[in-house]
Design a protein around this nucleic acid. Structure first.
Length: 957
RNA sequence: GCCGAAGUGGCGGAAUUGGUAGACGCGCUGGACUCAAAAUCCAGUGGUAGCAAUACCGUGUGGGUUCGAUUCCCACCUUCGGUACCA
């Protein structure tokens, strides 16, 4: 009987579904294991062969754990809110809910095609009101809590109010926005509106003025990466930084814990380092500079207080609150011109600018508290409003940026550190001896830092402070397709949380998805929804993409629960994600926000672990091959001229310009190789696809192809053979290189597809998709299958006991696969299966006792094939529910003799078999008597003989 | 610039703790089966020299440690990824 994957796979897929084989419950005595894939956004172009790489790996691991006796939670769902659906709606009028559902259906069917062991009863979508009810609820919890630094946890706002009523904000250690001191009496005298404003400075979800990239021409707010060089990427319209009152999440309150708890995670070092750099903890000093002739004080933050004697000027962020007050009349015009320029610059531009420093002098002076000299105050775009205090003391002698600024604007430079005794030290190194620095002169830098910090605190100029690069997360989007905020504003604009009983607050229906006029979400146009009967109004912004994905891993634990975000019983059992597989692109976004939300819920006693994702594996991207034809930029004799890539390379040297025209990779032979080419057949397909090129000429060294006719060049042999340009890049619709897994599954079967993707190489390495090896995997599966079949009798297994050699083959494979799965080396598992299959084939082994363990061993990799063989072997129920993962028996691996490589001076010269239990002495003696060794010894005694038992022997002569 | 990862046959890759470099697969070459082809099976396949035994070279480059280095150390080159006027 031939191996027919399509038939087998359909049969068992249906069976698994009918029998609910992968359904799990937390009511289990078995130990739990939670395997999670990163939440996919269901894009319009569907899954391509790159997506499943991580899903296959996690599925193998989940199945492996199941067969090893664990109760495995392995769910899947969709991050369904997002910009693409909204943009599609603007273009086509199709409601995002409709297009999103279509995309989800497509994903669901594509995923179903690959034989994953998901418990589909737990499927979730963030755009489902049953789900976002709880996203809204968690947001409200954040709104109603503040962060207490003494207790290092979130506490209810009601406790904060009690504190305010008792003693104002004195003695409060809380994560907060800048807030002036006030007393209990002050608090009691405040209006409701005023109190609301004060509380906003403490809430974990709060409103503040932040800047957005506003594009008037497109009538919309743009993301940072949609802005290039100050204009919109689409259309090139001007973009302006516009201040807006927006919701933010006070993630900075958790900075220290987010940093410290990284230690206990089983993540790659590079991933941890990325997160820790993003949090960016620094120790330094908060310090006040007086402004000469005024009462103003400028607060700065510095990590290098020791360099203060070299602070010869100050720089404020252009958006700094004090800028208007400190601008002199004489400088006003210049400053305003500069501010206008800065407004046109996106944050990304400002930070990416390295070569050119810009700035403007305000016309005021600050007093350096240690030199007592007046130093000029400037503004410059290299100082960012949201980092530190938005103001710096500039020390051109010890900071490269400050130096460049000083040189450009002719500001004084005072050397304060002598680095001559540290010849290799760079300007950033905290090394050297202080000079020109008053009482610090002569001290080494680390001592100087300590000394000046004490002095600053003694003189009341400021205090030690820990600072983080991490910024609070902006949580408002002026979009339709996201979770509505469960917040209403009263007539004074005070925000009120909606009660749980009124959740979810669902999105109103809409037929026009364009933004409303002004910087507003499309929701602002639905006045019946926005305006409430009592005169109150709803928030019209919606939540960002990361809202729904920051807690979805908890929802899977109890996905249908309608009275809680997840039931406590389920949370107590499943606890956290044991294995999380996904791409590195989420290193600082999703993975930081999720950890923050999880910690917040932990503070509230709603989850039981400090961290959500115990182990993280990053999968590499599977890239596509982009194949392009070279077309001469200008037409020749009125027609387009395409040439062989080799010809184009020659002619480009002569100054002829070419453009690359990407083509469907299917038209190209040997695609992905340097020699990839299009023959006449491919060119005909190309012309049929792009009729505008029907008259074009296609020129290769053999001759010219035009309108279906090939004219050979004199003396040339062979037909049309147009070499294309091959590049490796992203798989995308626009590059015509998307490979749909469905097509591969159709041809080879899901089991083959799964094993082939694993066979490509290590899980975490990026590599281009190439089908050239898939036949080898397909061949292997058929070989494995045929071990169970006799040409005459059909399915037939012998009940004889396996020979020692057969057992050795089987148990070598078992050992190898178990070890390799544990270290996520799935590629070498596949080769271990291949080796065992080849050897058993050679031994003509068809013994049940040898083959049955291999069937179970392979079940995580080829679930359908294994299931079929399991049933053919007469076993009951699903292999995935009733199988037990085999463990190797060391006895079978013992060998009577060992082949020792014999090296002379480290170079292998011979191999000699010795009994496995040979002693060191007998080995040494016999080796030296060996003729091959004698030849190298040339009669002289060896200097040294190294014997590594069971491994090798090395003789030094 | 900084941080991180990686450089191994024609190709994807293997070598788990410093111990036979190139497992496994693709491709290629030769052979068997076939009228023929496909499929399948068998053999070979890092380079150079040689009929061969074998010798020399060989894991980006140059040094080092070691009986022995793809693996450890130093310097450099290249590629990929991340990241930034972070005070």
């Amino acid at each position: 009987m031939d191996y027919n994957p399509r038939e087998i796979e359909n049969k068992w897929k249906t069976y698994w579904e009918e029998q609910a084989v992968y359904k799990v419950t937390h009511k289990s005595d078995k130990p739990k294991f939670y395997v999670l894939d990163m939440f996919p956004y269901p894009s319009g172009s569907g899954l391509h062969v790159g997506h499943p790489l991580g899903y296959i790996a996690s599925d193998i691991f989940a199945r492996y754990k199941r067969l090893s006796g664990f109760n495995v939670l392995h769910p899947m769902g969709y991050d369904a809110f997002g910009l693409p659906a909204e943009q599609y709606a603007i273009q086509t009028g199709v409601h995002p809910a409709v297009s999103t559902q279509e995309n989800i259906n497509r994903y669901r069917s594509q995923l179903g095609n690959l034989g994953f062991s998901y418990d589909w009863s737990r499927e979730i979508s963030t755009a489902d009101p049953h789900y976002y009810k709880w996203t809204q609820w968690i947001f409200l919890q954040l709104f109603e809590h503040y962060y207490d630094k003494n207790q290092q946890k979130a506490l209810p706002i009601s406790q904060l109010i009690v504190h305010f009523e008792r003693e104002g904000n004195a003695g409060l250690q809380a994560a907060a926005s800048p807030q002036a001191p006030f007393s209990a009496a002050d608090w009691k005298a405040m209006s409701a509106k005023h109190r609301d404003e004060v509380l906003m400075n403490y809430r974990l979800a709060y409103r503040k003025v932040t800047y957005v990239n506003w594009c008037e021409a497109l009538g919309t707010v743009l993301a940072n990466d949609e802005v290039k060089d100050g204009v919109s990427e689409r259309g090139g319209y001007p973009v302006e930084r516009k201040p807006m009152l927006q919701w933010s999440l006070r993630i900075t309150a958790y900075a220290e814990r987010l940093l410290n708890d990284l230690q206990e995670l089983d993540w790659s070092d590079s991933m941890k380092r990325t997160q820790s750099n993003w949090i960016g903890r620094s120790e330094g000093a908060q310090l006040f500079f007086d402004v000469a002739g005024t009462d103003h004080k400028i607060e700065i933050y510095t990590t290098r207080a020791d360099t203060i004697f070299g602070a010869t000027y100050m720089v404020l962020a252009p958006e700094h609150d004090l800028v208007p007050a400190l601008t002199s009349d004489a400088q006003r015009a210049e400053v305003e011109a500069y501010l206008k320029y800065v407004k046109s610059r996106s944050e990304r531009d400002r930070m990416a600018e390295v070569k050119e420093v810009t700035g403007a002098f305000l016309g005021s002076y600050a007093v350096n508290p240690f030199t007592n000299e007046n130093i000029p105050i400037w503004i410059g775009e290299y100082v960012l409003k949201d980092y530190g205090t938005g103001a710096i003391m500039a020390v051109p002698a010890d900071d490269e940026r400050d130096l460049r600024f000083a040189q450009k604007f002719n500001l004084p430079v005072v050397d304060i550190i002598d680095k001559s005794m540290y010849p290799n030290a760079t300007i950033e190194d905290k090394l050297g001896k202080m000079i020109n620095s008053g009482f610090l002169t002569g001290l080494e830098v680390p001592d100087a830092i300590e000394t000046i910090l004490k002095e600053i605190e003694n003189r009341g100029l400021g205090k030690r402070q820990v600072n983080y690069k991490l910024r609070d997360a902006i949580y408002s989007r002026q979009r339709y397709w996201g979770e509505p905020f469960p917040v209403v504003y009263d007539t004074e604009g005070v925000a009120h949380a909606m009660p749980l009983s009124e959740l979810p607050l669902t999105l109103p229906d809409l037929d026009d998805f364009k933004p409303a006029s002004g910087v507003k979400s499309p929701l602002a146009r639905v006045s019946s929804w926005v305006n409430l009967p009592n005169g109150w109004t709803r928030e019209t912004d919606t939540m960002p993409g990361f809202a729904g994905s920051s807690w979805y891993f908890l929802r899977y634990m109890d996905a249908q629960n309608d009275s809680e975000f997840a039931g406590q019983e389920a949370i107590q059992y499943w606890r956290d994600v044991d294995l999380y597989i996904g791409g590195t692109e989420h290193a600082v976004g999703h993975l930081m926000y999720s950890r923050f939300w999880h910690k917040f819920l932990y503070d509230k006693g709603l989850v039981v672990t400090k961290e959500p994702f115990r182990k993280l594996i990053n999968q590499g991207m599977i890239q596509g091959v982009i194949e392009s034809l070279m077309m001469q930029k200008d037409k020749v004799n009125g027609v387009n001229r395409f040439v062989c890539a080799t010809i184009a390379a020659e002619e480009e040297k002569k100054g002829i310009e070419f453009v690359k025209i990407p083509v469907y990779v299917d038209y190209v032979r040997d695609y992905g190789l340097p020699s990839s080419y299009m023959d006449a057949e491919g060119l005909d397909k190309f012309i049929a696809w792009r009729p505008e090129y029907q008259d074009a000429i296609f020129e290769c060294p053999n001759g010219i192809y035009q309108k279906g006719i090939f004219t050979p060049r004199a003396g040339a042999e062979g037909g049309s053979h147009l070499v294309t340009v091959s590049e490796v890049g992203k798989m995308s619709k626009s590059k015509y290189n998307v490979i749909n897994p469905d097509d591969v599954v159709e041809k080879y079967g899901a089991d083959c597809f799964r094993m082939y993707e694993m066979f490509l190489g290590p899980i975490d390495v990026a590599k281009p998709w190439n089908t050239s090896g898939i036949d080898g995997v397909s061949r292997f599966l058929r070989k494995f299958w045929s071990l169970f079949f006799d040409p005459k009798k059909g399915f037939f297994l012998s009940e004889e006991a396996p020979t020692a050699e057969e057992q050795r083959v089987v148990h070598t494979c078992i050992k190898r696969v178990n070890e390799d799965i544990e270290r996520f080396a799935f590629n070498t598992c596949v080769s271990a299966f291949m080796i065992a299959t080849n050897e058993l084939g050679r031994l003509k082994c068809n013994k049940r006792a040898a083959l049955e363990p291999l069937v179970v061993l392979m079940a995580p990799f080829a679930p359908h094939l294994s299931e079929e063989l399991w049933h053919l072997m007469g076993r009951e129920g699903s292999i995935h529910a009733n199988g037990a993962y085999p463990e190797h028996n060391e006895d079978y691996l013992k060998q009577d003799s060992v082949n020792y490589p014999i090296a002379i001076n480290g170079k292998t010269r011979a191999t000699i078999a010795f009994p496995a239990d040979a002693t060191q002495e007998s080995l040494t003696k016999e080796v030296l008597d060996n003729p091959a060794v004698q030849k190298w010894l040339e009669g002289k005694p060896p200097k040294k003989v190294i014997v590594v038992p069971g491994r090798m022997i090395n003789i030094v002569v």
